[in-house]
């Protein structure tokens, strides 16, 4: 039974999945549940290895869960995968276009696979090429395109059959900042103009914050937080303070700084990570003089102090109990 415009586009209930057996078994999903309302961009945020891709693979009918159920666009992905497939578009982490075919040929073949006539497939390909600004390169081999254009082609191929739900698995990984911004603009438009439901996995906190109307944070195979980015940040109450300590300061100075700042009234959750001290304060402007005085009294000279509204990084830290950058095992991915 397909969902209505205002219904639930994706529902995952208690999904579990283990890869391998015996000692080598890896529990990729450990009872993940969430619901995605129709017509929004929904973020699945977490570090590498958290289970995001596994969840998307199950929801897109690629793999089967060991336990739990999932419906996409009203179709049970286990019992009715054939109908679910017609309702979804899947854009995998890895490029999925044929590099030896032109952009247009890739799109036409996709359309034909979904049952469009040759004429309709060509028309739809033309539409998508124009929409994604790929018209000029359309008849060159896709393998020779830039990374950003190739990624857009992957997304366009996922849209050929006008799906109701689009899965984007790490869509901007490996793109340069300009190409990333371009793709973000396209993803924004998908939900706004087409009423499409987009499930986006990402390990870029900034990306989830920028694109997702709602999100779940996944860590080690389970959902640790759920809500809109604003809600999640508001739950933290107050602002976050970051103090950069002088590079020369040894562990001892960091230790003193941590204790001194922790003793200031209204300051909570003090952590020191490398040369950076982070803390939560109720009201940043009011607490700042006290923090500075405490550092001064402890004999620690900060090189910089920044104050910010809480970020999803802070949300992650709070719920997963560790900083996102530590949890993420790939180098240089933190925004």
């Amino acid at each position: 039974m397909p969902t209505t415009r205002s219904g639930t586009a994706i529902e995952a209930v208690n999904l579990g999945k283990t890869y391998g057996r015996g000692e080598k078994a890896v529990r990729a999903l450990n009872g993940v549940s969430f619901a995605v309302p129709t017509g929004v961009v929904f973020g699945l945020l977490g570090p590498n290895g958290a289970g995001k891709s596994t969840a998307v693979r199950i929801l897109s009918t690629l793999s089967k869960p060991d336990s739990g159920t999932a419906t996409v666009a009203g179709f049970d992905v286990r019992r009715d995968p054939a109908r679910a497939r017609r309702a979804i578009g899947y854009v995998s982490q890895k490029p999925a276009f044929d590099p030896m075919a032109t952009g247009r040929e890739n799109l036409v073949l996709s359309g034909r696979v979904y049952g469009l006539s040759r004429r309709d497939a060509r028309e739809r390909a033309r539409e998508l090429l124009t929409r994604f600004g790929l018209g000029d390169a359309a008849d060159r081999l896709a393998g020779k395109w830039s990374g950003g254009m190739q990624r857009k082609l992957d997304v366009a191929m996922g849209l050929v059959h006008r799906p109701r739900v689009l899965f984007l698995d790490e869509p901007t990984t490996g793109l340069d900042p300009e190409a990333r911004a371009g793709l973000w603009a396209e993803i924004d438009r998908l939900a706004a103009d087409d009423g499409l439901t987009v499930l986006l996995t990402t390990h870029y906190l900034e990306e989830a914050d920028r694109l997702a109307a709602r999100l779940v944070i996944v860590d080690a195979g389970r959902v640790v937080a759920e809500g809109s980015p604003e809600q999640l940040k508001n739950e933290l109450h107050g602002d976050s303070v970051q103090v950069e300590l002088a590079a020369g300061d040894a562990g001892d100075a960091r230790h003193r700084a941590r204790h001194a700042v922790g003793a200031v009234p209204g300051v909570a959750d003090v952590t020191v990570d490398g040369g950076v001290l982070r803390a939560r304060v109720g009201n940043g402007a009011a607490a700042l003089p006290g923090v500075l005085a405490a550092l001064d009294a402890a004999g620690v000279v900060p090189t910089a102090i920044t104050m910010a509204r809480p970020s999803l990084d802070d949300v992650y830290l709070r719920h997963a109990g560790r900083a996102f950058r530590e949890a993420d095992r790939t180098e240089g991915v933190l925004v």
Binding site: S60, L62, R85, I88, Y90, S110, D154, G158
Partner: peptide
């Protein structure tokens, strides 16, 4: 990702 995409189609 070609094979994966094919399998979800």
């Amino acid at each position: 990702g070609v094979l994966d995409r094919n399998v979800t189609s």
